[in-house]
Simulated assay, not measured.
Amino acid sequence: MKVLFVLSALLAAVTALPIEERVNGENGWFIPKLDGSFEWMDLRDAEELLFSGEQMEGRISTNAVKFYLYTKSNPTSAQEITSDASSIDGSHFNKDHGTRFVIHGWTQSAQDEMNTRITKAWLSRGDYNVIVVDWARARSVDYASSVLAVPGAGAKVGEMIKYLHEHHGMSLDSLEVIGHSLGAQVSGYAGKTVGEGRIHSIVGLDPALPLFSYDKPDKRLSSDDAHYVESIQTNGGKLGFLKPIGKGAFYPNGGKKQPGCGVDVTGSCSHGRSVLYYAEAVTEDNFGTIKCHDYEDAVSKKCGSTYSSVRMGAVTNAYMVDGDYYVPVNSKAPFGKIE
């Protein structure tokens, strides 16, 4: 309660820059609230909030993280697993199958539709260990409180990855970690915990922007957190990053707003489309892409009309992708377009 009070007090004490001078992610952030509205916080106030929160983080309530395993043998009935030999040996975990960790964002849980969609998509592809992560602090009332829990949650995911690798033979070379929004930032800290470039692939689905800085890669998902990092950016500049985060950065419809989302004042529809696109990409491999000179060309849709050989979300991207891509999309499913 004390932490929430301090966070709330700091949030209430924001310094108001003139509206025309506010640049989200540069001199401050528009912080999302549970009711769908936003509250501006200047950079200085945000840094004070984060510093104060980091000082208290180790002395407050537990940062609970749980892991739920799905396989072809239990595609809809989860097995909770822990870093204990009897837990793993008594589960359907198979070291000979590729592994996918899936991490939800703010306000969500392991039962969220994001997880079921991605789990179903991968299990339709073949035999995989799909491990859905539930980090309880994502459900904090204050977004800022969830942000403060990201490093600790990511470290716990990273420790589980190391445990499965070192004690149960899980291959890091066939491992992919998929995170949406704040979950993408958690995946970055998981990668940092395992060690630079050791996880094969991380896919960030519209990585969360509020309270994260592009110029501080050590405190967000960055291209060094895995051998290959892919970012699928659908609400850039609002709920998600606009500048490229991954080695391969993909910009559906220019990366800011998605067709079929209407006015989308809160950005939640466009933000969530990254999940729908990814799940479809896994099952259909149908998102054609156009290589761009840089991300600004991708955002302004000035990359020409010649499709590349790269498909957004493809497993093979880890071996062939480096750069920014514009991705044409439809307003309804199937969302992907191919030449």
Rank of each mutant, 00 (worst) to 15 (best):
H168S: 03
V132G: 09
D173R: 14
I178W: 01
V132Q: 06
L172G: 03
V132S: 13
E176S: 11
S145A: 14
H167G: 00
M170Q: 07
L175Y: 13
H165P: 09
L148G: 03
W135Y: 15
L172Q: 04
G154L: 02
G158I: 01
G179L: 09
H167T: 02
S187H: 00
L182M: 13
G158E: 08
R137W: 06
L175A: 07
A144L: 11
S140N: 15
H168I: 03
A149F: 02
E166Q: 15
Q185H: 07
A153Y: 04
H180S: 14
N129E: 02
H180N: 15
S140D: 12
S146Y: 06
Y163G: 07
S174A: 14
S187C: 07
G158A: 11
Y143N: 03
A144T: 08
R139K: 15
E166H: 14
L182F: 12
S140G: 00
V130K: 06
M170N: 01
S181H: 05
Q185E: 11
H168A: 02
K162V: 12
H167I: 00
V177T: 07
M160I: 12
I131N: 13
Y143A: 04
H168Q: 01
Y143D: 05
V177W: 09
I131A: 14
L164C: 03
K156E: 14
S146M: 03
G154Q: 05
D142W: 14
Y143Q: 04
E176Q: 14
G169H: 11
D142C: 10
E159R: 15
I161Q: 09
E166G: 10
S145M: 10
G152I: 03
V186Y: 10
I131L: 12
Q185N: 06
H168P: 00
G152F: 10
E166T: 14
I178R: 04
V157K: 05
S146H: 04
W135Q: 10
N129L: 02
R137L: 12
L164N: 05
E159F: 12
A136D: 15
H168M: 07
D173C: 02
H167Y: 14
V147P: 09
S140I: 01
V147K: 06
G154E: 00
S145K: 03
V186N: 06
M170Y: 07
R139P: 06
V133T: 06
H180Q: 12
L175P: 05
L172H: 05
V130H: 05
V132I: 14
A153K: 00
L172N: 02
G152Y: 13
Q185S: 06
V150W: 00
H167W: 00
L164D: 04
L182D: 11
L182C: 14
Y163C: 03
R139W: 07
L172Y: 08
I131D: 12
V133R: 12
S145F: 09
E166P: 06
A136R: 13
A138W: 00
A138V: 03
L164M: 09
I178D: 04
V141C: 04
G169S: 12
S146T: 13
E159Y: 10
Y143T: 02
H180R: 13
S174P: 02
M160P: 08
Y163N: 01
V130G: 04
I161A: 14
N129V: 02
E166L: 11
H165F: 11
Y163D: 01
G152M: 08
Q185I: 09
K156M: 08
R139Y: 07
